[in-house]
């Protein structure tokens, strides 16, 4: 089978890759592009570990073919944090920082998917209710935390983002 040449915008950067026509975006991200932040949980669209943002929409990368992203824009967890500062500290996004502060992860396999799902939510709705957060995250399975700490972290991150002055808002 002929491999396809795909050009796409990945985390703000124009990139090219080759893929099999039936290869999932998840496998291209992990195996070809070596962006292993995006995880495979179920491979059937149930667990959300592979969540990425495609043209502004939250999607499961396991149910997206790599060939479909030609000319589109893909955001993965690798693009969420800011650059490393001169002091050597990583500029974590407030969503990531709050997940850490609230101890909202244990094994961490679901976390990249949660970060992307929460980013998609807060990009749309800066002030979600707890109920909205819980419904929005229904497609992200976490078997460690019981979700409560995740929900607290999300509400806290949302509050922090709302209070940040414009010039300090993450890109």
């Amino acid at each position: 089978m002929t491999r396809m040449h795909i050009t796409t915008c990945l985390n703000g950067e124009e990139i090219d890759f080759l893929c099999e026509p039936h290869q999932s975006l998840l496998h291209v991200l992990r195996d070809e592009l070596k962006l292993t932040g995006t995880k495979e949980g179920c491979g059937t669209g149930d667990c959300g570990a592979c969540s990425v943002i495609l043209d502004g929409r939250l999607v499961n990368s396991c149910l997206t073919l790599a060939a479909e992203v030609q000319g589109r824009s893909v955001e993965t967890v690798e693009g969420v944090a800011g650059p490393v500062s001169q002091a050597g500290t990583v500029g974590l996004h407030p969503i990531q920082q709050k997940l850490l502060e609230h101890a909202a992860l244990q094994c961490g396999v679901c976390t990249p998917g949660i970060v992307m799902a929460v980013k998609a939510l807060l990009d749309r709705e800066p002030d979600p209710s707890e109920r909205e957060v819980r419904y929005w995250l229904a497609g992200n399975l976490c078997r460690c935390t019981g979700y409560d700490k995740i929900v607290r972290a999300v509400l806290d991150a949302a509050a922090e983002l709302r209070n940040l002055p414009e010039e300090r808002q993450p890109a």
Binding site: M1, P21, H22, Q23, S24, C42, G43, C62, L65, E68
Partner: peptide, 16 residues
């Protein structure tokens, strides 16, 4: 289960 079994195993061509 859920590891290597989840690769799309078919060789389908793609057209858009």
């Amino acid at each position: 289960a859920g590891g290597q079994e989840t690769q799309v195993s078919v060789n389908a061509a793609y057209a858009a």
